[in-house]
């Protein structure tokens, strides 16, 4: 009996090790959106505009063709990191980006765009963070790929960069465009 007691720690450890191994062996990335949101239509939204020259965002404006939706804030450091790359996407016309300005001061966000450039087609203000909750946003910045029917196809948490784009987003975009042409 006493011997079995001494086996306890080993058994417990083996169970924990299996739990540790599972996500790695599955190739799971904790930053990938839970399957619950993927291939679901975007939640209802109707957001007021941030700048006078561009309209806000509602469900209508997010359907039609493949696009990115990017949650950002002027107070968020990593957003600044990815901003340069967003500008590059805009210049090279890779894919249109729609911005959702998350829990931000209007002045600060406008200043941010005039300082760093405006990579967005349309920008909506998510003043109280309600929309972000509906989308299940972990934290800014976060970027979603929406297909032409307004369904969420991919989610990336954290700043975008050339490498992230090439490795993760580009394959999804290519696949979606191929479907469109079929």
């Amino acid at each position: 009996m006493r011997k079995i007691l001494y086996l306890g720690p080993l058994i417990l450890f083996v169970i924990i090790a299996i739990y540790f191994a599972a996500p790695i062996l599955d190739g799971k990335d904790p930053r990938i959106l839970p399957s619950a949101m993927i291939e679901k239509p975007i939640p209802n939204l109707d957001l007021p505009p941030l700048v006078r020259t561009k309209p806000g965002i509602d469900n209508q404006s997010l359907t039609g063709n493949v696009r990115l939706v990017n949650f950002f804030s002027s107070w968020c450091g990593p957003c600044r990191t990815e901003h340069e790359f967003l500008m590059k996407i805009k210049e090279t016309k890779l894919v249109p980006i729609y911005g959702i300005n998350y829990k931000d001061k209007k002045n600060a966000a406008q200043q941010w765009l005039s300082d760093l450039g405006d990579p967005y087609e349309k920008i909506g203000r998510d003043i109280d963070g309600r929309t972000a909750i509906d989308w299940g946003v972990y934290g800014v910045p976060e970027t979603y790929i929406i297909d032409r029917n307004g369904f969420i196809q991919y989610r990336h948490v954290g700043p975008l960069s050339q490498r992230v784009f090439d490795d993760k987003l580009a394959p999804v975009l290519t696949a979606l465009r191929k479907q469109e042409n079929d």
Binding site: R2, K3, Y6, L7, P9, L10, F13, V14, A17
Partner: peptide
């Protein structure tokens, strides 16, 4: 390391 050590523990400690 830990699995090994706990195995020796289960064998030797009693």
């Amino acid at each position: 390391f830990i699995g090994g050590a706990l195995t020796i523990f289960a064998l030797r400690a009693p």
